[in-house]
Computed example of a mutant assay.
Amino acid sequence: MTILVTGARGNVGRRVLQRLYAAGHSLRASGRNPAELDVPEGVETVALDLNDPETFVAALAGVSKVLLYAEPDGIVKFLDEAETAGVEKIVLLSSNTVEGPGSENDPLAHHHKIVEDAVAASGLTYTILRPGAFMSNAFGWSYSLQAGDTIDQVFPEAQVAPVHEDDIADVAVVALTEKKLEDQTVLLTGPESLTFRQELEIIGEVLGRKLVINELTREQGEAQMSNFVPPPILASLLAQWEAAVGVVADTSATAERITGKPGRTFRQWVEEHGSYLA
């Protein structure tokens, strides 16, 4: 039977696809425009828009397991079609915002909670993955890094435990191919609590540059980020960061407890991606 990987162009979906391919699984990669998917030879591609039920039947035909990203519009219909198609397991890429402080009023948490609840109520076997901030969020500094050594940042003392996308992918593969995470919700953090200031210090050290932080007020940060972050997501991020100022982030839920391999550090991520940052 075939494993369907939705979001196959994404930071996690792409990595999961590569791992499953190397292990010899039958795979189908989906995207709204499958012609844009860059997949290994022999991997089937299919059009799938999680907002468009007309695309569900073809995408799910012959599928046994699904790596699913969180899209609330159409989720109930998608799960109904998955059950009809004989899908055995859903692995959902959700977010730790669902269990964060003030989550009941957080638009990003609400977005993911709708999908989590639908998956848990579907009757299908599932694993819900709740990663924290991705290390790849650091790409948000790339424009400033390319322009110079002064970096604008709101709430630079906010602490996060960023998680490497490879760690998320490793756990997702376990969830898709083994039984030990079935019907569980799995929190994922990185191995270190870091402030944004410390992250930028690490980036500077790896790049051999002395970076200077220009601390923005909340209002200045909101005005600057509103150019590229949708308002509900921006409100959620700023609230999370403000609440995290001076609060050590939980690092107890690394991938190591599942994979047996130490969680990848932020410095490792920067060493791998530094050439794309600046």
Rank of each mutant, 00 (worst) to 15 (best):
residue 3 I to W: 04
residue 4 L to W: 03
residue 6 T to I: 01
residue 7 G to L: 02
residue 9 R to N: 13
residue 11 N to E: 11
residue 13 G to V: 01
residue 15 R to P: 01
residue 18 Q to E: 14
residue 18 Q to P: 06
residue 20 L to G: 02
residue 23 A to K: 14
residue 27 L to A: 00
residue 28 R to I: 03
residue 30 S to G: 03
residue 32 R to L: 01
residue 34 P to K: 03
residue 44 E to G: 04
residue 47 A to R: 15
residue 51 N to D: 10
residue 59 A to Q: 06
residue 59 A to H: 09
residue 67 L to M: 15
residue 69 Y to K: 08
residue 71 E to Y: 10
residue 72 P to G: 13
residue 80 D to I: 04
residue 84 T to Q: 09
residue 85 A to V: 07
residue 86 G to V: 08
residue 86 G to Q: 07
residue 90 I to S: 01
residue 91 V to P: 00
residue 94 S to W: 01
residue 94 S to Y: 01
residue 95 S to K: 01
residue 99 E to D: 14
residue 104 E to I: 13
residue 104 E to A: 15
residue 107 P to V: 08
residue 112 H to T: 05
residue 113 K to E: 12
residue 114 I to Y: 07
residue 116 E to Q: 06
residue 116 E to V: 00
residue 118 A to K: 03
residue 119 V to M: 02
residue 120 A to W: 00
residue 123 G to F: 00
residue 124 L to T: 00
residue 131 P to M: 04
residue 131 P to S: 03
residue 132 G to W: 02
residue 133 A to M: 15
residue 140 G to V: 07
residue 141 W to K: 10
residue 142 S to K: 14
residue 144 S to R: 13
residue 145 L to G: 05
residue 154 V to L: 11
residue 159 Q to M: 15
residue 160 V to T: 13
residue 161 A to V: 08
residue 166 D to I: 04
residue 178 E to P: 08
residue 182 E to A: 15
residue 187 L to N: 02
residue 191 P to C: 06
residue 197 R to K: 13
residue 198 Q to V: 09
residue 198 Q to A: 15
residue 200 L to M: 09
residue 205 E to A: 10
residue 210 K to D: 15
residue 212 V to S: 11
residue 219 E to T: 14
residue 227 N to G: 15
residue 230 P to C: 08
residue 230 P to M: 12
residue 233 I to Y: 13
residue 235 A to W: 10
residue 236 S to L: 12
residue 242 E to D: 15
residue 244 A to D: 12
residue 249 A to D: 10
residue 249 A to W: 12
residue 252 S to K: 13
residue 252 S to G: 14
residue 257 R to L: 11
residue 259 T to S: 03
residue 259 T to N: 05
residue 262 P to R: 08
residue 268 Q to R: 03
residue 268 Q to Y: 03
residue 272 E to M: 05
residue 272 E to T: 01
residue 274 G to Y: 08
residue 274 G to H: 12
